[in-house]
Nucleic acid binder design. Sequence first.
DNA 1: GCCAACGTTGGC
DNA 2: GCCAACGTTGGC
Length: 160
Amino acid sequence: MNSHDKRYWLLKSEPSVFGIDDLAACPDQSTHWDGVRNYQARNMLRDQMKKGDLAFFYHSNCKQPGIVGLMEIIRQGYPDHTAFDPRSKYHDPKSSPEKPRWYMVDIKLVKKFEQPVSLTELKRHPQLENMLLLKKGNRLSVLPISPDHWDFILSLTQAK
DNA sequence: GCCAACGTTGGC
DNA sequence: GCCAACGTTGGC
């Protein structure tokens, strides 16, 4: 068991690039969360995300943006090797195995919601008004979620 | 496709 | 260190 307190996160991905159904199709419904190229997000992946933490899967930049499922962090931050690959679209020549600049975690699908929680719905609830995701201009692809918000959003997925 | 709100780059 | 130019994100 983990001795630390479990933390909650939200991870964004464009479904046209990698959506929750792609994750569901992965062996063991698990893969690495690669391609994060923002320092603030990197720091959270590298320093704060721990094995056993839970994360919402958020579909961004698509017709129906929203939270579509939840995942577990099964491996904490380690160097993102796609940065080392010149053929990868995530290649960064300034990152090397000796001095990695970017990090990723491994995640596993826990549940795909039968009823996704759309961005529109999230905005409708005053309980969520200071959620980072809903702050103006927010563009971070990795965001912490407070336990209260986590529980509240989960309760929405069980609504009829 | 538009555009606001960022983040990054690089000249000075 | 400043800041203009540029690139990206992401809702609409």
